[in-house]
Design a binder for these strands. Structure first.
Length: 802
RNA sequence: GCCGCUGUGGCGGAAUGGCAGACGCACUCGACUCAAAAUCGAGCGGGAAACCAUGUGGGUUCAAGUCCCACCAGCGGCACCA
């Protein structure tokens, strides 16, 4: 019989669906396993070959865990709000809802065709009002607890489209769509206080099992630094507060810099002699786009404030104050003490403006460059700190400043609050109402979801407001508090909102009265294993951890962390080794692969392609090897002998393979698990195979290639589905071969190999080695000094010439 | 600039400090065929060999792809965070 993958795959997909095989039970007594992959954005271009890499990997884990008796939840849904859909809607005058519906249908067909064991009864969609009701509800809770606030923020503004752009739409400083200049413009935006959770987001990384690179990236993004705020007196007799991580270098502070946005410029305006120059500088700095700011980052600019200076508190010296945009108002206090000898930026600035550079830590060459890595140096030119190590100086100066009451220890974070507003249509409406009398008032809970109104045009207004701002009968409403006339917020939420809590909804997706029942959350959370792309490490992963912690704080969820374990897969690149993209013309369409080779081959190949965590280029010829393996698996089914226990010839390799495949699946080593299965098949071809052996092989192979194995399992008359059968067990004692081949080395260089019984003692091994002709010959001209034997591995003779 | 990752055959890649190149692709030869494809069998880092080979140069060790130090190259992320 021919291996007719198309018919087989269709047959089993239908059977699984009909029998609801992958439905997660609500049997809360069974051990559970919650596997999660990032739900896709259903784009118009359909599934990418990258999607199945992640989905197949956790499908394999899920299928194995089911066979091991777990109650497995492996859900799927749609992160369907977002820009491309909206842009498509604008261009084609179709409602984004319709676009989404079509794209979801296509994605779902494509996913179904891959035989992924998702529980489709729990499918969710972030654009479904029954879903976003709870996204809005969480937002209202954040608002209620003071974690949502409105503030004026610079946004990206395209001068030609006259609209606000998301960061993703700004490419190399210009508008992605029209190529025109993008400038900064102030706009009032809703913000979420993620910074309030910064410390906990770092600390609780200790509670979870994330790949180390993910933890490091999160920590870097949050960017904690410890230092002190120090007060400098000025000639105006007021206090300029700065932040520094290096109070020990205070004697080297030869000038100060404040940010162009610093409020003291106004405060001192009467005293500043060159105020017009300062204001002109400030104007240009404020209006620079982010792109311009970074473009000219190498070249420092600034203006000296004439008329006001500061006093260095340790030596009483009067030092000048500059305004420069290399100091950011949004970090620390917006003012710094500049220590050019030990900071590269200060050094550059000092060189340009010809300011004194005073070395305070010995060891560098400050004629040439700033000496920054000076943690092990010794203090100089620093009065009472001279001769101390940097660490000692830090301690002493801190005590000194504390005593004088001009310094306080301070921790700062790079992490900023989350800009939560989008001036767009296709997102969750922010459920707030503005009343002249009562201010911002939440839409009452029983009025949620606040639905998106039906409108005809999805473009922003000329002022960059959301298209919702044009719907006057939607905007104008009554204040829920006082009943007076009020206006709805017209901004919508960012795409990150719906994806920040979706994993909770899967546990109880149809619940009408709460986002998920207590019992469901108690049982299913936290997610046991979450796999996704590295590109989501800093935003999505951080945002969802933040929301989860907030929900924990208000008693909605039972765990501090949403995900016990997080892994990430590498990208699948085009055949030329570059990222797949339409413009590079190297995109592989998964539909065509499934059509030509079948879903099983596609799955197997994507798992065999290389190290799961690393990027790997697609290869049209390599996939044939995977297909060949399945053909050989199929062909062998005709020559299976009877037998209900393992034969002596195959016993050891079977136990070994069961062990290896099981361990490799848990350790993301799918490629070597498949290699072991290929080796096993080769061994069957060599030694013959019986029914018991072939059945074990099918079980091990099933999570990888579920359709063909299910078919081969059913052919001899098995009524129970393979997917529901028990995962094979192995016996550690039987994983060992009776005889082993060991290497014989002279001074670590291979001279021969010898065979001997497994676990032979050192004497037996070295005697056997010594009796080998090649070893004898090699030893004839030298003397053995020492013999090293590693059991079942090597015998190494350490020798010297006679 | 900073952070992270990666350098192993023609290619994808294997190797708890213990026989480098498992498994697969490509390729070569042979069988089958009128022929080709498919399939099956054999070979496949370099070198005649001694030996030499895991980006480069040092080091630790009886033994290094693996550990340490210093470089070089590529990829990804961040970007004036005091």
């Amino acid at each position: 019989m021919k291996y007719d993958f198309a018919a087989i795959e269709k047959k089993w997909q239908d059977k699984w669906e009909e029998a609801q095989v992958f439905r997660a039970g609500n049997d809360y007594k069974k051990p559970k396993f919650y596997a999660l992959v990032e739900f896709p954005y259903p784009s118009g271009s359909g599934l990418h070959v990258g999607h199945p890499r992640s989905y197949t990997a956790l499908d394999i884990v899920s299928r194995k865990r089911r066979m091991q008796g777990y109650n497995v939840l492996y859900p799927m849904g749609w992160d369907a709000f977002g820009l491309p859909t909206e842009n498509f809607a604008i261009a084609n005058h179709i409602h984004p809802k319709e676009v989404t519906k079509k794209n979801v249908a296509r994605f779902k067909d494509q996913l179904r065709s891959l035989g992924l064991s998702f529980d489709w009864s729990r499918e969710i969609n972030t654009t479904d009002p029954d879903y976003y009701k709870w996204t809005q509800w969480i937002f209202l809770k954040l608002f209620e607890k003071g974690l949502a606030y409105k503030t004026t923020m610079p946004v990206n503004w395209c001068v030609s489209c006259k609209c606000v752009l998301a960061n993703e739409e700004v490419v190399n400083g210009v508008c992605e769509r029209c190529g025109s200049e993008v400038v900064r413009r102030e706009k009032s935006q809703w913000m979420l206080k993620i910074t309030e959770y910064a410390q906990r987001l770092i600390d609780d990384l200790d509670l979870v099992d994330y790949a180390e690179r993910i933890k490091i990236q999160q920590k870097n993004w949050i960017g904690r630094s410890t230092g002190a705020e120090v007060d400098f007196k000025t000639t105006e007799n007021d206090i300029l507060r700065i932040y520094t991580t290096r109070p020990d270098t205070l004697f080297g502070a030869t000038y100060m810099v404040i940010s162009p946005e610093h409020p003291y410029i106004e405060k001192w305006s009467g005293k500043i002699k060159n105020i017009s120059e300062i204001e002109a500088y400030r104007e240009t700095a404020v209006h620079k786009s982010d792109f311009e700011r970074t473009e000219i980052a190498k070249d420092k600019t600034g203006v000296k404030i004439c008329g006001v200076s500061a006093i260095n508190p340790v030596n009483g010296k009067e030092i000048p104050i500059f305004v420069s945009d290399y100091v950011l108002m949004s970090y620390g206090t917006g003012a710094i003490m500049a220590v050019p000898a030990h900071d590269t930026r200060d050094y550059e600035f000092a060189k340009k403006f010809d300011l004194p550079i005073v070395e305070v830590v010995k060891g560098g060459n400050i004629e040439k460059e700033a000496f920054v890595d000076c943690e092990t140096g010794v203090m100089v030119n620093s009065g009472f700190l001279d001769g101390l190590s940097v660490a000692e100086a830090k301690k002493k100066i801190t005590e000194y400043l504390n005593e004088k009451g001009i310094a306080t220890p301070k921790v700062n974070f790079k992490l900023r609050d989350w800009v939560f507003s989008r001036q767009r249509y296709w997102g969750e409406p922010i459920p707030l109402v503005y009343c002249e009398k009562c201010g911002w008032v939440p839409v009452p809970e029983d009025e949620l979801p606040l639905r998106l109104p039906e409108i005809g045009s999805y473009e922003q207004t000329d002022t960059g407001d959301s298209p919702l701002a044009k719907i006057t009968d939607w905007i104008n409403t009554k204040c829920p508090k006082c009943g007076g006339s009020a206006k709805r917020e017209t901004d919508t939420m960012p795409q990150w909102a719906g994806s920040s809590w979706y994993f909770l909804r899967y546990t109880d997706p149809h619940n009408k009265s709460t986002l998920a029942s207590k019992e469901a959350l108690e049982y299913w959370t936290p997610v046991d294993w979450y796999n996704g792309g590295m590109e989501h490490t800093t935003l999505h992963l951080l945002y969802s951890r933040f929301w989860h912690k907030f929900l924990y704080d208000i008693g909605v969820v039972p765990t501090k962390e949403p995900y016990s374990k997080r892994t990430s897969h590498g990208m699948i690149l085009g055949e030329n080794g570059e990222k797949m993209s339409k413009s590079r013309g190297n995109v592989v369409n998964p539909d065509e692969i499934v059509k030509e080779y079948g879903a099983d081959t596609m799955r197997l190949y994507e798992m065999f392609i290389g190290d799961f965590e690393k990027a790997a280029p697609w290869s049209a010829s390599s996939i044939k090897g995977c297909r060949r393996f399945l053909e050989r698996t199929w062909a062998l089914s005709d020559s299976v002998a009877s037998g209900d226990c393992y034969s002596a010839k195959n016993e050891a390799i079977l136990h070994k393979t069961i062990k290896k495949v099981g361990e490799d699946i848990e350790n993301l080593k799918y490629n070597t698990a498949i290699a072991a299965l290929m080796t096993l098949l080769n061994s069957f071809y060599e030694n013959g195979v019986n029914r018991a052996e072939y059945n074990t092989f099918l079980k091990l192979l099933n999570p990888f290639v579920p359709h063909i194995t299910e078919e081969l399992w059913s052919i001899p008359g098995n009524m129970e589905m393979l997917a529901l059968s028990a995962w094979p067990a192995f016996d550690e004692n039987k994983t060992k071969d009776e005889e082993v081949e060991i290497a014989v080395q002279l001074n670590g260089k291979l001279k021969a190999t010898v065979r001997l019984p497994a676990d032979s003692d050192e004497k037996t091994a070295s005697d056997k080695a010594l009796s080998d002709e090649r070893v004898k010959a090699a030893l004839s001209s030298c003397q053995i000094v020492k013999t090293i034997v590693v059991k079942n591995r090597i015998v190494n003779f350490v020798v010297k010439p006679l």
